[in-house]
């Protein structure tokens, strides 16, 4: 006989498994994203090279050129791995598919969390492989030692915070027709104050301090930074901050969901 906890675990695991299975059918989409990643990395390799050459120094804020490029590979791989949750939930609400979800004995948010993690995990592997190919060719091998372990340790939290940030916005689809605008802003915040294009250390001090108080750093900066420059002492702090934000955002999402589901207008009445 299965205990309730075990049955729950099987339930969510099954959602993850079927998501990965279904995702494997989107090979073209994988390739398209990987190609775009290659282009962006190609541009940035040239940009950072020119910048380091212009500045004349080997390292900037402790980052060598090699580290900056691999930082970008990690951060971009996480970015490109994240599914478009807002589009999905908005479509579900508009097309009325939310009905099919809500009649199931599974938490709506929990269902989406599992599909998000499964999809992001799979995509991350593909994107990392593509990004590594070009970075390796231009920059040499990524010998970051424990960095890889740090990266791996911070990834689950990174995707969790990314999911919750997106979910908070996506759930607004229960009220408004259009959430893309806000998703867009969110994405851009990740790009900048989240440290996708450059590590927070390279920002002006005042901005770096602001970023330190925001959840966006937990998604891209934490794993990428730990990946290229391992620091055992800060790893614990990073993990704690990450899951602290995750908890806070989870409470927020639960609150939004509970209010939203009462307001829900399912189309096709």
């Amino acid at each position: 006989m299965m205990t309730p906890a075990l049955a729950k675990w099987h339930k969510y695991r099954a959602v993850g498994i079927i998501t990965v299975k279904q995702q494997l059918h989107y090979r073209v989409d994988f390739i398209v994203r990987a190609l775009f990643l290659l282009l962006i990395l190609f541009i940035f390799i040239h940009l950072w090279r020119a910048a380091y050459t212009s500045s004349g120094s080997e390292t900037i804020e402790g980052f060598a050129l090699n580290q900056i490029i691999w930082y970008l590979v990690f951060a971009e791989a996480v970015t490109m791995a994240c599914p478009q949750l807002c589009v999905r939930i908005e479509e579900e609400v508009k097309q009325g598919e939310v009905a099919v979800r809500l009649i199931r004995p599974i938490a709506y948010n929990g269902f989406h969390y599992m599909t998000y993690l499964a999809e992001a995990g799979l995509r991350f592997i593909v994107q990392l492989a593509a990004g590594s190919a070009i970075a390796w060719a231009y920059m040499g091998s990524p010998l970051f030692g424990w960095g890889w372990a740090g990266l791996a340790a911070l990834l689950p939290g990174a995707f969790t915070v990314a999911f919750l940030l997106n979910l908070a916005v996506a759930l607004l689809a229960f009220w408004v027709e259009e959430t893309r605008g806000m998703e867009f802003v969110l994405q851009k915040l990740n790009f900048t104050v989240g440290g996708m294009l450059l590590p927070l250390e390279l920002m002006p001090d005042w901005l770096e301090r602001v970023c330190g108080w925001l959840p966006f750093q937990a998604v891209l900066y934490f794993p990428a930074r730990m990946g290229v420059a391992f620091d055992g002492g800060r790893l614990a702090a990073f993990l704690l901050t990450q899951w602290g934000w995750a908890a806070a955002l989870a409470v927020l999402c639960a609150f939004i969901y509970r209010r939203g589901v009462r307001k829900l207008n399912v189309n096709g009445g």
Binding site: S55, R180, F191, T192
Partner: peptide, 27 residues
Amino acid sequence: MLAVMMFVNNCIWLVFWAIFFNRFPAV
């Protein structure tokens, strides 16, 4: 929203460049 969104998007790229050139005044 869509129009404003694009506008903001472009502005954010400028923020990146502002930070970038703050580090490297000329490239």
